[in-house]
Simulated scan of single mutants.
Amino acid sequence: MEDKNNFQLFLPALEAETNNGISLIAADIRGDVTYLAHYVTESKKVLSRNHHTYNTADYRNVSDMVMQFMQDYSCRGASKIGIAVPGPVIGGKSAPQRLSWTLDTEEIKATTGINKVYLINDLEASAYGLGVNDEHNFLPIHKSGDFSAGNVALLAPGDGLGEAGLFWDGKCLRPFATEGGHCEFSPRTSDEVEFYQFLQKIYGIVSWESVLSKSGLFNIYRFLRDVKQQKQPDWLTQEIEAGNFTQAIIDGALENRDRICTMTLDTFIIFLAREANSLVLKLKATGGLYLSGDIPMMLEKFLNNNKFYKNFIVSDRMESVLKDIPIYLVKDKNTIINGAAIYAAFTEE
C-alpha cells in the first residue's frame, strides 16, 4: 500500500491475483443507520465507488438492505460481502443487542446469491481499516520518545464502547475483536463509589460501556445533576428535550458555558484515560493506543489538553511503560466500513 503508517496488516490473500479487480459490498451496521458501500480492488487496495446510508429499522434484515443497495447502484457483479456488526461474531452468526434482527452468513448467501460473505465485529473491522489510513488521519496525542513495535490497542466510545487489539507477530499486525467494553466498571475514589452506586440501581451490573459511550456521557451528567446537585441550565434542558445532548454538552464545555458541562467532560476524560490504561496494559500494547469512534473525534481539544495523558499513565508499577506508549486520535470516520471491505477482499482467495 502506498500510504505510510505503522500498520503492516496480516492479509494472507493480498498477493492473490484472484483478488485483483474484484467487486465487493461492505456494510457498517449500527442501531440507527447502516452504511453501505461498493468497492473494487486495485493494486492491493480497496477503492470505494459508491456509498449510501439506510435507516436500519426500515429493513427486516441485512440481506434486504444489501439487495436494495445493489439495485440502487447497479453492482450485481459483486463477488464478496463484508459486514461489520456491533457485537460478537461466532460461527458466522451474530445477534447484536442494539439490533432487532440477527445475522447469519448462510442466510445472506442464499438471499443475495453471493457465496463469499464475511461477518466481522465492527471494532475488529476498524482495526483493519487503520491500515489504509495516511498519517494525516492520525492526530498525535502523545508521541513516544522510545517507540517499540508491538501490539496495538484500539478504544472507541460511541453508541457503545468498542475495544479491539492488533497482535504484532514480528512482521505484521493481526486484528482481533474483544468484548472488553462489557467488563465491570470499578470505582477508585469516594465520589466514584457514589457514581457506581447510582448506576448500580439502574443497571444492576455496571459495565464500562455504561460510563464510556453516548449513554455513559449522559449517565455522568445526570449523576452530577441529580446526586451532586449541579444545576441544569435552561438552554441545556431544551437541547436534551430535542435529543441533542451529546453535541450540546461538548459544545457547552468547549465554550465554558456552564459548570456542569465542564465537570461532565472532565469526568468522562478521566474515565476514558483509566480504561485506556487498562486496555493497553492487558494487551501490552507498546505499538500504540488509538482512540476512534464518534465521541473522541468530538473531544479533540479535550484530548490535547494533557488531562487525558496525565491520567493515562497513572499506575501502581507500570508508569515507566505507559509513558512511552504513543497515543493517536483517529480522524477517519470510515475505518469500520473500509476495514470490512479489506477483510472481505484479502483474508481469503
Rank of each mutant, 00 (worst) to 15 (best):
N256Y: 09
K201G: 14
E348P: 02
I25P: 04
S315D: 15
I141N: 08
R259A: 11
N334W: 11
M1F: 13
G129H: 10
L166Y: 06
I114R: 12
N151R: 12
E135D: 11
N277Q: 10
F312Y: 15
G160E: 09
D32C: 05
A95P: 01
D226C: 03
Y59Q: 03
V206A: 05
F167A: 01
S278F: 13
D266T: 09
D104Y: 09
M67A: 08
L322H: 06
S207K: 15
C75Y: 08
Q97M: 12
S148C: 07
Y59P: 07
A344I: 00
E2P: 11
N5H: 07
I202A: 10
Y59R: 04
A13R: 12
T189I: 04
N305H: 11
V314S: 10
A341T: 01
K45E: 08
N55A: 13
A164N: 07
L291I: 00
T262M: 14
D28C: 05
R174K: 15
E194N: 14
E42H: 14
E17W: 08
G91C: 04
K282P: 06
E209Y: 08
M298Q: 14
L254E: 12
L99T: 00
L289E: 02
G204L: 03
T189P: 10
G204A: 01
I249D: 01
Y309F: 15
G288P: 03
L130H: 07
S315V: 01
F312L: 10
Q97T: 09
L281A: 03
L154V: 10
P86G: 00
M1C: 07
I202Y: 10
I295W: 09
D58F: 13
